[in-house]
Computed example of a mutant assay.
Amino acid sequence: MKIESIVRSEEPIALFGGGQIGPDDLNLAFNRVNCVVAADGGAAILIDSGRIPDAVIGDFDSLDPVYRDQIPDAQQFFVSEQDSTDFEKALRQIEAPLVLGVGFLGARVDHQLAAFNTLVRLQDRPCVLLGEDEVILHAPPKLALPMAKGQTVSLFPLRRVTGRSRGLEWPIDQLVFEPDGQVGTSNRALGAIELQVDGPGLLVMLPRDMLDEVMRAFLSGQSARWPARAE
């Protein structure tokens, strides 16, 4: 049975975590979304910036009571299970055309790997993670982006996956990507690129300044979405 999402929106949402957040990340997110949600301890940086999150989702084990007391009870959503990360708890409960994830990259490598795992397992929840130098997303079935010649396009599989490309210096058409086999780091755009992926499981890493183009691609509907993964 499908569980009703805690946060639902027809517009993109920003989701903040408790990890590394750069000096420009807050304004970048605030200028692109109207609704901001925090995954547990991610509420602290929002409150410090003067913004009370529209919702806080988690088990509240990493949010200081000083911050929690400033959040209205109606905007706190307790999720008790301990088998998932704060990022997964929150992303599962958001229904939106796109989630911009801030504060989930940088710092601890294990947290980053867990975030990548969540992107792929929650394949029906489009999400773009913002990093210091790049944006990282789970490749949708189709992705077309206007890129400048020479910009880096890195592809990393978390499952066995195949696909086709146009506009890459090294096409992927004849490749089989696997986590312990062929990967596609440091490919380069020849200009506008197109990717078609045969199944979920491929991470795409692009320069940070591609964020707006990536958001437009998802919000236009041209990229399509993977169905929810069978549990």
Results as ranks from 00 to 15, higher is better:
E213I: 04
R225F: 11
L190G: 07
L195F: 13
S223R: 09
L202Y: 03
A217S: 12
P207I: 07
D180G: 06
I193L: 13
N187Q: 05
V214R: 00
L206R: 14
L206Q: 11
A228W: 03
T185A: 06
L206K: 15
E194T: 02
V197M: 11
V197G: 07
S223C: 15
L203Y: 02
D209V: 09
L202K: 04
P227M: 04
F218K: 14
L195I: 08
M210I: 03
M205W: 03
D212F: 01
D180Q: 10
L202A: 11
M210F: 02
S220D: 10
R225W: 12
F218V: 14
G221T: 09
R229E: 15
M210H: 02
Q182W: 04
A217L: 07
A189L: 03
L203P: 00
Q182R: 05
Q222P: 05
L206W: 10
R216L: 08
W226C: 01
A228E: 15
D212A: 06
D180H: 10
Q222W: 10
S223T: 15
R208Y: 11
M215E: 01
M215P: 00
F218W: 15
A217F: 08
E194L: 04
N187V: 03
L219W: 08
R216H: 12
A217H: 06
G181I: 10
W226Q: 00
R208S: 09
S220I: 12
E213Q: 05
G191R: 12
V204K: 02
G199E: 04
D212R: 07
L202D: 04
L190E: 15
R208N: 10
V214P: 01
R229H: 13
R229K: 15
Q196E: 11
G191K: 11
L219D: 06
R216V: 09
N187M: 01
W226M: 02
M210D: 02
L195A: 05
G181A: 09
D209W: 09
S223G: 13
A192T: 13
R225L: 11
L202E: 06
V183S: 12
T185N: 06
M205E: 10
P227R: 06
N187E: 09
P227V: 02
L203K: 01
G181W: 14
D209I: 07
V204G: 02
A189M: 00
G184F: 02
G184V: 01
W226H: 03
A192Y: 07
L206I: 13
A192Q: 13
A224S: 12
W226L: 00
Q182M: 04
M205G: 08
M215W: 00
G199W: 09
G184I: 04
A192V: 06
S186D: 12
I193E: 13
G181D: 12
P200L: 04
A189W: 01
M210R: 03
G199Y: 05
T185E: 04
W226D: 01
G201I: 01
V197P: 00
G181L: 11
L211F: 03
V197F: 05
G181Q: 12
A224H: 12
S220Q: 10
L195G: 08
R225I: 12
R229Q: 15
T185M: 06
Q222L: 14
D198S: 11
L219T: 08
T185V: 09
Q222T: 11
D209N: 09
